[in-house]
Nucleic acid binder design. Structure first.
Length: 510
RNA sequence: GGCCCGUUCGUCUAGGGGUUAGGACACCAGAUUUUCAUUCUGGUAACAGGGGUUCGAUUCCCCUACGGGCUACCA
């Protein structure tokens, strides 16, 4: 086991946690467990305008469903709290001041209109990317361009201001990324990012660096969308004099739309009518519920397994991994660089694999609510047997009742295609004879039922094979299903005899 | 537009200067199952393009194309 890492998953509570976030959390989690390290949940809520009630709880619950538990975090506490940035508000100011004192940051008093004006002006002058930087800042209202006494006067008067990073004019910043190796950017491409907002809150950039430092984070594992701002973060570590304890960076490839172009988004789930989040999400604004994998009857193990293999692979041909096995096998070095299309066809396959390996009795338990919801009494022995028969035909636990309704009630309709094809003389006559034969049968089990079925057919000089589907139709209303005599045995004599009578009644005696 | 990152079957990916370019999902076909599903067997299918370097490039370098990300007092 290598050195214990301290890693954090740091979402902002602006909405439900989407699959990319779950995977980012997962990779953090795996590394933490593998090294005997610490997995931390930090809530990045520095933008108070985007706060969505319930989002934080949703994040926690989603990850718990997946099997991930945090060692430190907003909900479990820990020695480096608080873990909600809004509650750490008072801590950031001193670090911003430290930067100003060292000449790495400055006050800026520009209004929104002035900033807009600046951008417009630069655009007109054909500047490729208008930014607040070493060149433009001399024309703006800040503590670098204004006389010292005016700066002081504005400060004393309580004029609104932000604190900006003083980006060096022309320096190479080298970022070492575990997944991408060295990324080099010249500071001439970077702007004087706002570190401290006029509302007294830090921006992500400041808060993230300060908190990672304070929380002794060793590895920053986050989405690729953060790669462009990482040079700024590196510069901040240097400005603070924290290079020696700067975390290592790993930027994960993005999850892409299942079809079409672009980054995976919530819309894709809605559009395809498939579950999208780990668990059901109800929007506090619209009250609309987006279906989750949990509620759709997926196994968290299958979901995690599927997600882990999006962007990472073990280097051999293994595909099925428990969480524990993932912990053993995972490494950031084997995470690939390119985005992965979020094609959940394969998730169904994973789910099937897990479904088949689950004990029948356990699956039976899981299916109880569906049966109850349909208004039927629950008999666990019966259910377990039904699962045994249906197991290999199901993809999701949630599929059970709708595939197996005829286990619980006699069919009221019959598949018309099958009727047309199979329900014709001499079938009805055979069914009548069969009904009588079943009624007089001594022992009731699959083998006996099959034997009497064959005898009855042979006596009429018919081939059993040609009658089988009609029989299934009479019992289940469908042309396909599980082993028919196993089903016969399970349903019981009374039920079978009654269903044969009903079929003759509905479909005709020929 | 600028900057950054990327590009192997439809999808997830392995591989790596000389390979019949491997696996999985999906798909198709055959076998088994009287049905359907399962299972088994087989099959279709990929190194974005152009230049280098090299005896030899899919693999290394450059360019182009394409895709993605970022470009806010959002994270």
């Amino acid at each position: 086991m290598s050195t214990p890492v301290r890693v954090r998953f740091a979402p902002s509570p602006t909405g439900p946690l989407h699959p990319g976030g779950v995977r980012t959390a997962l990779f953090n989690y795996l590394l933490a467990r593998q090294t005997g390290g610490t997995f931390i949940l930090r809530i990045e809520d520095t933008d108070q305008t985007r706060f969505v009630p319930g989002a934080e709880q949703f994040i926690i619950e989603s990850l718990e469903w997946c099997g991930m538990k945090f060692d430190e975090g907003v909900h479990v506490g820990g020695p480096h709290g608080p873990y909600r940035q809004s509650e750490r508000k008072a801590m950031y100011r001193q670090y911003a001041d430290q930067l100003i004192a060292a000449g790495h940051a400055y006050y800026a008093f520009d209004t929104e209109e002035e900033l807009e004006e600046m951008r417009e002006r630069l655009k007109k002058a054909n500047v490729a990317s208008p930014q607040y930087n070493s060149i433009t800042r001399v024309n703006m209202k800040n503590s670098l361009s204004l006389p010292a006494d005016e700066v002081q006067r504005r400060l004393d008067a309580g004029d609104p201001y932000v604190i900006r990073f003083k980006m060096p004019r022309n320096e190479e910043v080298r970022v070492k990324d575990i997944i991408r190796s060295w990324v080099v950017v010249n500071t001439s491409q970077l702007d004087d990012k706002v570190l401290f907002k006029s509302d007294g809150m830090p921006t992500y950039h400041l808060a993230n660096v300060v908190d990672d430092y304070l929380m002794k984070i060793t590895h920053v594992i986050r989405g690729e969308e953060w790669l462009p701002s990482t040079p700024l973060h590196v510069l901040l570590y240097q400005a603070f004099g924290w290079e020696a304890v700067m975390p290592q960076f790993a930027h994960l490839p993005l999850l892409l739309k299942p079809d079409g172009d672009g980054k995976l988004s919530k819309r894709d789930g809605d559009r395809l009518g498939l579950p999208f989040y780990a668990i059901n999400w109800t929007s506090p604004e619209t009250g609309e519920t987006t279906l989750g994998y949990r509620e759709s009857g997926y196994f968290p193990e299958a979901y995690v397994n599927f997600l882990a293999l999006l962007g990472w692979n073990p280097g051999d041909n293994r595909e099925i991994f428990s969480l524990e096995e993932l912990v053993q096998a995972f490494s950031l070095e084997r995470v690939n660089k390119h985005g992965a299309r979020y094609d959940f066809t394969k998730l169904n396959w994973f789910n099937q694999q897990y479904l088949r390996n689950r004990p029948h009795a356990e699956l039976a338990e899981m299916v109880v609510p569906q049966v109850l919801a349909a208004g039927h009494m629950v008999d666990m022995d019966f259910l377990t047997e039904a699962i045994r028969l249906m197991n290999e035909r199901m993809t999701l636990v949630g599929d059970f009742y709708k595939m197996s309704q005829y286990f619980f009630e006699a069919p009221t309709t019959y598949d018309e295609e099958v009727v047309a094809k199979r329900w014709k003389a001499p079938v009805p006559a055979f069914i009548e004879k069969l009904q009588a034969a079943f009624a007089g049968l001594n022992s009731w089990d699959a083998a006996s039922c099959e034997a009497i079925f064959n005898e009855t057919a042979t006596a009429m000089e018919l081939k059993p094979g040609q009658l089988m589907q009609a029989y299934r139709l009479a019992i289940s209303g469908q042309g396909a299903g599980p082993a028919i005599f196993e089903l016969t045995a399970l349903l019981g004599r009374d039920q079978i005899v009654a269903r044969l009578a009903a079929a003759l009644n509905t479909l005709g005696h020929g």
